[in-house]
Amino acid sequence: MGISVSNITKSYGKVTALSDISFDVKPGELFGLIGPDGAGKTTLFRILTTLLIADKGQATVAGYDVLKEYKSIRNSVGYMPGRFSLYQDLTVEENLNFFATIFGTTIEENYDLVKDIYVQIEPFKTRRAGKLSGGMKQKLALSCALIHKPKVLFLDEPTTGVDPVSRKEFWEMLKRLQKKDITILVSTPYMDEAALCDRIALIQDGKILQIDTPNAIVSHFPKPLYNISANDMYGLIESLTNYKHTYSIFPFGEFVHYTDKRDTMDIERLKTYLESQNLTDIHIEKTQPTIEDTFMELAK
């Protein structure tokens, strides 16, 4: 009853947006599609919400076939597109009311479902949607996508362009919604959000790199990972790039994430090498890989 995708392929002219994608989302699962811009996330969402037809492959949403039973799907899913797609000249309340009406329900009927979210924007209910801040717009859009109590919720990059506090709140809401038996498929380019999903699919260039729980994905990281910092970030990256044993380096905040080609490596020797490159304040320590590291490794 969740989502089932098998061998979906879609191309726009010569550009392949999705190639042979398959995965399943269990009912009640919070499933994340993690990938950079242009990975094909939005295309996949549009195929699943019956807006586009795949070139090849099958998919079902809430048990309905996306092609043959598209009308049933349109009745039973909530969709929040990546771009803010509400009526800017309608007020918060009018927007919500409109979406409730076209799905044949009322705000009162499903109020408990959207209550947690809607109370935060209710003080502004007479304000035009176009005049809301980014975070509030997303909360309103989520309320509108939820007001008809959908079985499956599609959220295409819901937190892009939203401040960190609102992002955190938004994910807390998703967690609460999940408890109300709503299957959620969410996409995001932010790796830190991936950890909050039950399972994630890493997607790039229209291909799925890996599907697993966030913990499992991290544990599959093949090599020991080191945090390295020094007084001069630029010099550090350059020195490591020229180091003959370097397998991968990846700037990560104030550190550089480093893996070595060899199975065992000597931290002291690397430190000596870096010191010979006129770097000071060098710290090297083993660290836990993140989803971002895994992604970069898989995307290589």
């Binding site: 019956t50 807006l51 969709y79 803010f84 797609s85 009526y87 076209i102």
Partner: peptide, 13 residues
């Protein structure tokens, strides 16, 4: 243009 057609299509209308 505003993208609202996308939501209208994914509705029982």
């Amino acid at each position: 243009e505003q993208g609202t057609m996308e939501i209208l299509l994914v509705s029982p209308l």
